[in-house]
């Protein structure tokens, strides 16, 4: 699954945390430090697996817990239309 930041979503870092604004829905959100790091990794690579590998090297957490937390947060970000998935797309469709 490839993820990308949804169109019309802007983010701003605020110290270690961040604020996200969905311009389509007019709703804004906050991410804590770990969530912000995950957001940047997903925005950069689009790969949850790659993000998890990186976070495991940076944070004192075991893989099963991190996997569960990342899955939960990604579900929330998609549900709030902050992330979209390219799962149904093919590179040639551009």
């Amino acid at each position: 699954m490839r993820l990308r930041v949804a169109e019309n979503v802007v983010s701003r870092d605020l110290a270690d945390e961040s604020v996200l604004l969905n311009l389509d829905t007019g709703t804004y959100f906050g991410l804590d430090a770990v969530g912000t790091r995950l957001w940047h990794l997903l925005a950069e690579h689009g790969s949850p697996e790659s993000a998890i590998e990186t976070l495991l090297t940076e944070y004192d957490v075991d893989a099963p817990r991190l996997q569960k937390d990342v899955d939960t947060l990604i579900d929330q970000l998609i549900d709030k239309k902050l992330l979209t998935t390219d799962a149904a797309r093919t590179p040639s469709s551009r």
């Binding site: 709703t27 959100f29 906050g30 957490v61 990342v70 947060l73 709030k80």
Partner: peptide, 18 residues
Amino acid sequence: SPKKPYNTPTLVEYGDIA
């Protein structure tokens, strides 16, 4: 190398920007 303390990542919905 020292790792940062981990907290469950949290998304908070603050509400309508308007």
